[in-house]
Each structure stands twice: as C-alpha cells, then as structure tokens.
Amino acid sequence: MPKSSSKKPNSPVQHLFEYAVIRVVPRVEREEFINVGVILYCSGLKYLNALHRLDVEKLRALCSHTDPDELERYLQALTAICAGKTEGGPIGQLPLASRFRWLTATRSSVVQTSRVHPGFCTDASETLLRLFGQLVL
C-alpha cells in the first residue's frame, strides 16, 4: 500500500520571511515613534523590499521641529539600499541578507526599525503590502 503524502498536491510553497517595522522617533529620549514603513526579506524568494509613507500631520503633532523633507530622504535611502541601487552606497551593493541585517540593526537615531519578526509566505510582495496596510496605514 503506497504511503500518502501529508503535503497537498499543487499547494503553494511556503517561504520563511523576516520583516521589521520602520519607525520615526523624532525625540529619541522620549521613545515615542510613528510607524512609517515595513522592510521585508525572504531568502528563498531572493526578495528584499521596503514600503514607506510619512504622515506629516502625525509627525508635526508628535514633534513640530522635525523636518519631513529630511526624513523622506532618509526613508528613500532605505528603499535604495533594499533595491541595491547605486544611491544606496556601499551598503546597497552588499548581498540581500547583509543589507537586511544592516537596515534592521539596533540604532539610536531618528529613523529606527522594530525587532525582526518571522513568518511564512508564498508571495513576498503581497505579504509586504498586507503588513504595510496593517502596521502603517
């Protein structure tokens, strides 16, 4: 008698992914922050990407002296690093895993990330959009 497989035929392959929430912390000493984006890395799909949206009204309510244009440039730099663009500098030229680890390293600056969280997905882009909607919008 043949053994039955526990895996369903034609079921999509689940890939391990990791993500972190991008936060703006206008006054680090107060530890108040605004979620402004998500970075998602999936080794199995060779995927690294970030989405961000800076809510200027929230930012001004939390800390009126913070320059939204400057923050937007920082956030665009993160996206360039994810994409491996030359605008991402030397860090943008590293392998995907190294870029993700650099982007999510603990730092005490105005732009920070949460700790890294794992999950499983079949489509990394779709998962990034879903997390962005849940955690930022």
Rank of each mutant, 00 (worst) to 15 (best):
P2M: 05
K3M: 11
K3A: 13
K3L: 15
S4P: 01
S5I: 07
S6D: 02
S6H: 10
K7W: 00
K7H: 01
K8V: 01
N10I: 01
S11Q: 14
S11F: 07
S11N: 03
P12Y: 02
P12L: 12
P12C: 01
P12G: 08
V13K: 14
Q14K: 15
Q14C: 05
H15M: 09
L16D: 13
F17H: 15
F17Y: 15
E18M: 03
Y19W: 13
A20G: 09
V21I: 15
V21E: 09
V21R: 06
I22A: 02
I22N: 02
R23Q: 14
R23M: 10
V24N: 04
V25R: 11
P26Q: 03
R27I: 10
V28T: 10
E29L: 12
E31M: 11
E32A: 07
F33P: 00
I34D: 03
I34Y: 04
I34E: 03
N35C: 09
V36W: 02
G37I: 01
L40I: 07
L40R: 10
Y41C: 01
Y41S: 02
C42H: 11
K46S: 14
Y47W: 10
Y47F: 15
N49R: 14
N49K: 15
L51F: 09
L51Y: 11
L51T: 02
H52L: 01
H52R: 04
L54Q: 06
L54D: 04
L54Y: 05
E57Y: 08
R60T: 05
R60H: 09
R60D: 05
A61E: 13
C63Q: 13
C63P: 00
S64Q: 08
S64V: 06
S64R: 11
H65D: 11
D67V: 00
P68C: 04
P68S: 08
P68L: 06
D69V: 04
D69E: 11
D69G: 02
E70W: 07
L71A: 01
R73T: 03
Y74W: 05
L75N: 01
Q76W: 02
Q76Y: 04
A77P: 00
L78S: 00
I81L: 02
I81P: 03
C82M: 07
C82I: 06
C82A: 03
C82G: 03
G84R: 12
T86Y: 07
E87N: 02
G88T: 09
G88V: 08
G88K: 12
G89K: 14
I91A: 10
I91D: 04
G92K: 14
G92C: 10
Q93H: 15
R99G: 00
F100L: 06
R101T: 05
R101M: 00
R101E: 08
W102N: 11
L103E: 06
T104V: 10
A105N: 13
T106A: 13
R107S: 13
S108A: 10
V110P: 01
V110M: 09
Q112T: 12
S114E: 04
R115D: 11
V116S: 07
V116Y: 05
V116C: 06
V116M: 04
H117D: 04
G119W: 11
G119L: 12
F120C: 08
C121D: 11
S125D: 14
S125Q: 13
E126A: 12
L128Y: 10
L128C: 09
L131A: 07
F132Y: 15
G133K: 11
Q134N: 12
Q134C: 09
L135G: 07
L135M: 13
L135P: 02
L137N: 08
L137H: 09
L137M: 07
